[in-house]
Amino acid sequence: MEDLVEIHRGAEAIIYMGSYLGIRAIYKYRPSKQYRPEILDKRIRRLRTINEARIMTRLRLLGAPIPAILDVDPDSALIVMEYIPGKLLRDTLISGGSLDLCRRAGEILGIIHSGGVYHGDPTISNYIVDDNGDLWIIDFGLADYTNDPEDLAVDLHLLYRSIETLPLKSIDKMEEEVYKGYESIVGSERGREILERVRSIRLRGRYVAERRAKAVWLTDQEG
C-alpha cells in the first residue's frame, strides 16, 4: 500500500493506483466529509463501500467484464480492485474503433441489467478497451439494485447520449449495434420495452437523464 499514486479525485471518492500482493491495483477510497456528523458520515461511507463491493461481486459472478475485487475494508471505506490497463472506449471509437465494440458495450449493459442492477453512469468514458481488444466496464459508484424499467432505460439512454457527443458520422449505426448487443442478452421483448422507455424519457424533455451524463457538462468544455 506504500506507493499509492492519486489518479483521480471525484466528488465522492479518490482513486489511487498502486499494487496489491504484487498485482497492479486500483484503490478506491471514500474520504470523510466534515460537514456530516461523524456517526452519519461513517454510516454512509461504510454502506456505500459495502454496496459497491457487493454489486461488483455479484456482477463478476454473472460474468460481467468488470474489475475483480481484491479487498474491501468497509470501516475505512476502501475497495481494492484489479487495474484494467487500456484505453477509454470513447477514445477508441474516435480513433476509428470497430462497431463490434458498440455491440459488446450493449451486451455488457445487458448482462448488468439482467443481474437486477443499474450502473448509474454507463457512458463510453466508463468502458475500457484492454490491450487484447476486450471491453470492460468500470465505476459502480452510482450503481444500485433495481426492478424498475425506468432505471434501466436511463442507463441505456446515458450510453446513447455519450455516443451522441462523439464528433462522428456513424452515430446511428453505433447506437443500432449497442441495441443489438443489449437485446441479445435481455431478450427482444424486454429490449423493446426498455427502448420504448428510452424514447419516452427523451420525449419528456426532462433533463433527468441527460444531466446525468457527464458528457453534457464536460465534453464541450474540454473539447
Binding site: G10, A11, E12, K33, Y35, K214, W217, L218
Partner: peptide
C-alpha cells in the same frame, strides 16, 4: 451539500 459538491466537481 453532497449533491452540490457533486455538481461543483462535475
Amino acid at each position: 451539500v453532497e449533491v452540490t459538491e457533486r455538481c461543483v466537481s462535475h
